[in-house]
Nucleic acid binder design. Structure first.
Lengths: 225, 225
DNA sequence: CCAAAAGTGTTCCGTCTACACCCATGG
DNA sequence: CCATGGGTGTAGACGGAACACTTTTGG
């Protein structure tokens, strides 16, 4: 109940982004090699410091936007990491954020520019400091939430086929899903709308394109898959 | 990927504790009136600053121990709050922690000493700064997790009756539970052990006392209630 | 002897799971 | 014409929900 500003030390506060994307039916994340000390050259998450003129959430969105050029992406706090020596240089407390992006929205040239690349989940190297732990927590969180919140659409284009959607669930949950059971459940969900459009890219016959109706979801935000 | 220690500001980092207890078949939390500016006299959570010589998790345990005298309590990070003006004085980023304690372990005289008291969940007043939001998040987290993790035992003495246990679930989930179905499920859980002891305090007939076998749970940490 | 809490099984219903074949089309 | 992915229904198993009466004993 007591607060003394004096005699209490301050710390740097940073954000680190665990950025998931979906490509080639695989879940991937965006990693790069650190271009600064400490830890130069090590694989790491993309991050940045929280400034005076922004909240922690705003800092996370700013950093993500610096990297991707995209705003208003899905982003949720995962956990705050505060071990004394987690940063070898200074006392830095870091708030990890999980982001989901549609890989097709991502400008490829920015990958080069920021020195980051998409890495498959099962090929994640050892990362700087406690970043592997951040990734692991983000993955568990994603697995837990994907069945109760409409997250999967953030990894796909606005229009998607049911096969694509199923592949997202398979990639996140790590297992095969029965096609007929999956589609049965989807049919019972009002806010996944079938459009008149047909995707002819992935099959000769063509597959119906669906859309996530956010407005309808918000009217009745119950979800179970 | 870049980190500049220079030109980046530091912030105070604090922890705030949402402390749940179970008494009179009600879920309660420990609140007090702030004894310091800013916000002196307002209802608030108990908190403190993170020191140089401790991790954020350690700070949370230290603060909780200052208040209750108890160590090794169940404690989990809830969320980090980082709005620019959440503290009217300085830039303070606060990590909220949820703790579960057995009210009977708690020394009543400490309540007076620290100026805190047990408040029923549905009688929570308006709190200082963003503390109401912290409480709300902690409650949702508790509700979500109590069905998949063996949290309930932290709110009870080592030995408890099934009726007590059921009351904990009813208080947390907010609804009545069928006694027979509840007990059927408990019977199928190996790590909730029936002892030979009988509690004669709450009923004339006497009720069997049970115990949470932590070792057994850790061997097979699956749980669903 | 009665009030008060402990303790005990069965039936029903909805949900999840397993499973195999036909369709449309581009090359 | 055939290879490729798209699309569809049913039956059986399982788990959760509803439901009422007997037991014990202190006062």
């Amino acid at each position: 109940m007591t607060e003394f500003y004096s005699g209490v030390h301050k710390a740097f506060v940073s954000v680190d982004c665990i950025i998931f994307g979906f490509e080639d039916n695989k879940l991937k994340l965006l990693l790069g090699k650190r271009q600064m000390d400490p830890g130069r050259g090590e694989w790491a998450l993309y991050g940045g410091f929280v400034g005076t003129d922004e909240s922690v959430d705003e800092a996370a969105h700013r950093v993500l936007c610096e990297l991707t050029g995209l705003k208003n992406l899905y982003m949720k706090q995962v956990h705050t990491f505060g071990a004394i020596d987690r940063d070898p240089g200074e006392r830095v407390i870091s708030v990890a954020y999980c982001a989901l992006i549609n890989v097709k929205d991502y400008d490829e040239s920015l990958l080069q520019e920021h020195g980051v690349q998409w890495v498959e989940l099962n090929k994640i190297p050892q990362l700087y400091s406690d970043h592997n732990e951040m990734v692991n927590r983000a993955i568990s969180m994603l697995r837990r939430r994907i069945s109760t919140e409409p997250l999967s659409f953030n990894l796909l284009p606005d229009l998607f086929t049911l096969t694509q959607l199923q592949h997202v669930y398979e990639a996140v949950l790590g297992g095969e899903i029965d096609k007929r059971n999956f589609r049965k459940r989807i049919k019972s969900i009002d806010f996944i709308e079938k459009t008149e459009l047909i995707d002819k890219l992935t099959s000769k016959r063509g597959a119906a394109l669906y859309r996530f109706n956010k407005r309808m979801y918000e009217e009745d935000p119950s979800f179970k898959l």
